[in-house]
């Protein structure tokens, strides 16, 4: 097992954080207050990118899980696990930011609309995935099982969304850059890229930690077997 060592990634991390500070400042300073919502629209620059990153990281989990089931390489398993942890973090952030947005905008902290509820269910699926990894000790078993659980969870997300939408249809039409004022679009896109860089940096860091831990376990096994290394 190859253990990655720091190098260019450190500079990528510094760049990602600098870029995030830059885009947030830009968005806060340049965006005009919304006609209806006033300055509240500034919350969108953190809430919407966080939500995008949440869904993107679940796709990353699905992709690496599927590749693990196909090729059986330990690296894919560790990357899927790293993406799941980062995704769960952003997922929690998305939910909390949504509440901070919902309280002044709608008057309630929470409403059972399709997007909110399926984001919450997605969070619970992430939590189940991470709990499974926590409770299984054997490395190969953990990798196989969590790959299957990750893939099934990803299949389920659109079905959950659809069923909750049927169950209760009272939400506003999904906002996307086409229906928004161009003044907001640039800020939203720039912030989405900043969050993307942060996500990539986090996933890589988490992956490095996991592979160091695996390499340590391998080394310990080698010592236990009498110092026979390859």
């Amino acid at each position: 097992m190859v253990v990655p060592r720091p190098g260019a990634w450190r500079w990528f991390g510094v760049f990602a954080f600098a870029f995030l500070i830059f885009t947030q400042t830009l968005a806060i300073l340049t965006s005009p207050p919304d006609r209806d919502m006033g300055d509240l629209e500034k919350i969108l620059y953190v809430h919407v990118p966080a939500a995008w990153i949440t869904f993107l990281s679940f796709f990353v989990v699905l992709a690496f899980s599927a590749r693990y089931l196909w090729k059986g390489r330990e690296k894919d398993d560790l990357l899927a696990a790293a993406a799941a942890e980062v995704g769960a973090t952003f997922n929690g952030l998305t939910l909390l930011l949504g509440m901070i947005w919902g309280r002044p905008a709608w008057g309630v902290w929470w409403t059972w609309d399709a997007r909110l509820t399926s984001t919450l269910v997605l969070f619970l699926i992430f939590v189940g995935y991470l709990a499974l990894r926590e409770f299984v000790d054997d490395a190969q078993r953990r990798a196989q099982w969590s790959a299957v659980v990750g893939a099934l969870g990803a299949i389920n997300v659109p079905i959950v969304y659809m069923s909750v939408r049927w169950w209760r249809t009272l939400h506003q039409i999904q906002s996307n850059p086409n229906t928004m004022d161009p003044a907001y679009v640039l800020g939203l896109r720039a912030n989405a890229f900043a969050f993307l860089f942060i996500m990539i940096y986090f996933i890589h860091q988490r992956y490095v930690i996991a592979s160091l831990q695996r390499a340590t376990e391998h080394a310990a096994e080698a010592v236990a077997l009498g110092g026979q290394q390859e």
């Binding site: 619970l124 709990a131 069923s163």
Partner: peptide, 16 residues
């Protein structure tokens, strides 16, 4: 662990 994994997956079944 079983309910933790199973219940979120069963949300569509239960709702429907």
């Amino acid at each position: 662990l079983l309910p933790l994994l199973l219940f979120p997956m069963l949300v569509p079944v239960l709702l429907a």
